[in-house]
Every structure is written in C-alpha cells, then in structure tokens.
C-alpha cells in the first residue's frame, strides 16, 4: 500500500495526514478526521449524501480520491454554521421539515449551498431558458433540476424545495 502525506483545510482547520492512495475524501473525512457529517449512501456518486464543498464547489466526496486533492479547502456540513448561528439553509430545512431520517441531509445542505452559489454565478441548468433571469429567486423548476443529484428516500422533497426557496430569498 502506498501512503501519501497530504494537507487539507477542512472547515478552516489545516489537517495534515498520510492517506492510503485508495482512500476517498469521504472516507478520510469520516474515518480519519472524525467528521461523520458527510454520509455514505452509495459510494458511487449516485445519491449525493456525501456532498461537500471542495474548493468552493459541491462534489461527491465518495468519488474524489483524497490524494488527488492535496492542499484543497473542504467545507462539510459541520462547517456550514457560524458557531451556534446556523446557516440560513440549515434553518430553513428545520423550519420547512426538509428531512426525515436525516441521512441525506448533510449532502442536501452542502449541495444547496453550492447550488445557490452556482446560480449566483449565472450557471445555467437543463431547464434554464435562453431568456431566463437567474436573478435573486430561482424558480421551483430550477431548484428541482439543480438538486437532482441528492436522493431522499424518505421523500422530503417538498420540504427541501420549500427550504431552499426560503433560504434563497
């Protein structure tokens, strides 16, 4: 086995550790750094439960090899709140009951935060029309399409949609 030393900045803290080249970023977060917020739902990029912000962008951490992200800045669900002050998306998920079992929730939250940023940058989605204004308040269809990579088997989608709308205001 080859181990490589890497440095990651996770939720603002610099973490230095030697990792197995085979280790996913997800497993490093969960098994090595004690950050079990990001979840393993499929381990193949098909459910989104492992979503974190990697250098500011939402990604499936199960498919990211930790060694390939030397020096990266990672934000997990544990890093979304400012101390006890929850991120607006977190608050809205509680208020709109955007989860039930909670297992997909960390991925939904990180995905939503990343997605709102993508909207802000004017990135289109598959449902964006040529003349659509991706301004302040995204349409329901925009949110639905952009959150397609985060499965929720409890079926909390109605609450998730409402929560993201609320948080985007």
């Amino acid at each position: 086995m080859e181990a490589i030393e890497i440095v990651l900045t996770v939720n603002g803290d610099e973490r230095r550790l030697a990792v197995d080249t085979r280790a996913s970023l997800l497993d490093v977060l969960r098994e090595r750094l004690g950050l079990t917020g990001a979840k393993k739902g499929c381990d193949h990029g098909q459910c989104g439960a492992c979503t974190v912000l990697l250098d500011g962008r939402r990604v499936n951490s199960c498919l990211a090899l930790a060694v390939a992200h030397q020096g990266a800045e990672v934000i997990t669900v544990e890093g979304l709140a400012d101390g006890d002050d929850l991120h607006p998306v977190q608050r809205a998920f509680i208020e709109e009951d955007g989860f039930q079992c909670g297992y997909c929730t960390p991925g939904q939250l990180c995905s939503a935060v990343g997605m709102l940023d993508e909207l802000k940058q004017g990135w289109p989605s598959a449902v964006t029309g040529d003349d659509d204004d991706l301004g302040d308040e995204p349409s329901d269809d925009e949110i639905r399409e952009r959150m397609n990579g985060n499965l929720c088997r409890c079926g909390a989608y109605a609450g998730i949609l409402a929560a993201i709308k609320e948080a985007s205001r």
Binding site: L35, T36, G37, A38, K39, T76, V77, E78, L80, A81, L86, Q90, F93, I94, F99, G102, Y103, T105, P106, L109
Partner: peptide, 10 residues
C-alpha cells in the same frame, strides 16, 4: 439541529 449540523450520529 443535530441533523442539519452533522452531529446526529448513525
């Protein structure tokens, strides 16, 4: 709060 902050342990 535990579920949205990743503190709820499975």
């Amino acid at each position: 709060v535990a579920k949205v902050t990743g503190q709820a342990r499975y």
